[in-house]
Each structure stands twice: as C-alpha cells, then as structure tokens.
C-alpha cells in the first residue's frame, strides 16, 4: 500500500492541472488560448472536466473491487469534490461571463431550455453531496449517508444527458461519455443482482 498522504497530495495537484491550464488560457498566458470564442470554450472545458471527474469518481469503486487495491477508495471523496469544483465553476462562468448575471435570462434559460434544466438539476443535487462529504456528516447521517449519496448515479445520468442535448449535431463525444457511464452503472446493477441471487439461493 502506497503512502496515502503523499498519494493524495499528488492526485490533488494533478486534479488542479486543468484549472491552472484554463486559467492561463483565459489570460492568454504561457502559450495557452481559449480561441476566438473564449467564453464558450471555457464553459465547455469546465463542463467536460466536471463530467470527467464525476465518471472517474464512479470508476473508483469498481476499480478498487476488481483490482483488490482498496486504497483507491481513499481517493474517491477528493475526486468527487473536484467534480463539484469544476461543475460549480462551469455554472459560475455561465451565470457571470455568459449571461452577465442577468437573473431574468438565467431563469428563462432554466425554465425554457431542457438541457439547462437538466444541468441545473444536477448541480442542485450535487450541493448536498458536497456538503455532507465530511467525516462529521458521514457519522451524523450514518446509514442514511449512503442512501443520500446514491444520488450521484442520477446526477451522472443528468450530466451526460445535459451534454447530449447541448451539442448541435455531432453526438459522438457525449455518446462516449454515455457508454462509459453505462459500463459503470451496469457493473453496479450486475453486482446487485448477482448478490441478491446468491442470497435467495442460500435461503432456499
């Protein structure tokens, strides 16, 4: 088992790389650039990273179980919080840069554009998960904590769906994310059903 504290510090630094690169690009530093339509590019990249970290978080459990490297589970919370971090930045850049904090425009968007309705719902569901991610809240909620955090499956579906509905024509990229998500969710379903079958087999 590796030195967990060192590993966590390393993973933390790696997770910040997209943020640093986008920050540099936003100000055209170090050869980085967001191109001709910087707001759209920033929005798109932040959303993608949020989704990537979300899928990575969901991959930790199966990876740990299948490889037997249970220390992987110790990284799950950090990855989940990074997903929240990028998705929150995605929303903030939408609200502040794209919409200029025009409340009427934002509310109209949320009500009238289904893909934004989906994205907003996912973000709102993520907030309680981020808040209750601490050890204190885990203790306080006990069994209910696990139940609450199953919301992440719904959030991931909404997130990929949000991506799929947003693209103009080329759905290849969102379909790749949908494929990965189906594998990750399918693994859990398979596990659940095979376990319940074992239980019924034993009880007979």
């Amino acid at each position: 088992m590796p030195n967990i504290r060192l590993l966590k510090a390393l993973v933390f630094a790696v997770c910040l790389v997209p943020f640093v690169l986008l920050g540099l690009a936003a100000f055209n530093l170090a050869g980085q650039s967001l191109g001709a339509n910087p707001i759209e590019e920033l929005l798109h990249q932040l959303g993608l990273w949020g989704l990537r970290f979300l899928l990575l978080t969901l991959a930790i459990t199966p990876l740990g179980q299948l490889s037997g490297k249970t220390w992987l589970l110790k990284l799950r919370r950090m990855l989940g919080l990074f997903s929240f971090f990028y998705i929150l930045l995605h929303f903030l850049s939408y609200a502040i840069l794209d919409q200029g904090l025009s409340y009427t425009a934002i509310i109209e968007d949320i009500i009238e554009r289904p893909y934004i309705t989906l994205g907003m719902t996912a973000l709102l569901m993520l907030i309680p998960l981020a808040i209750t991610s601490t050890n204190g809240w885990m203790r306080r909620l006990g069994r209910r904590w696990k139940k609450l955090h199953r919301l992440v499956y719904v959030i991931a579906i909404l997130g990929v769906w949000h991506f799929f509905w947003q693209v103009k024509l080329d759905t290849r990229e969102p379909l790749i994310y949908a494929g990965i998500l189906s594998v990750l969710l399918g693994y859990r379903l398979w596990l659940k059903f095979s376990k319940s079958r074992q239980i019924t087999a034993k009880s007979q």
Partner: peptide, 18 residues
C-alpha cells in the same frame, strides 16, 4: 434548444456581456 434573443460578438473576450 437555445435563445436567439442575444448574441456573443466574437472578439470581445471573456468579460463583455452578450
């Protein structure tokens, strides 16, 4: 799927509203 009421003028950078 999106509003046509406003538009982003390319070249305005990060900090100009639609």
């Amino acid at each position: 799927r999106w509003s046509q009421a406003r538009e982003r003028l390319i070249g305005n950078g990060l900090f100009v509203a639609k």
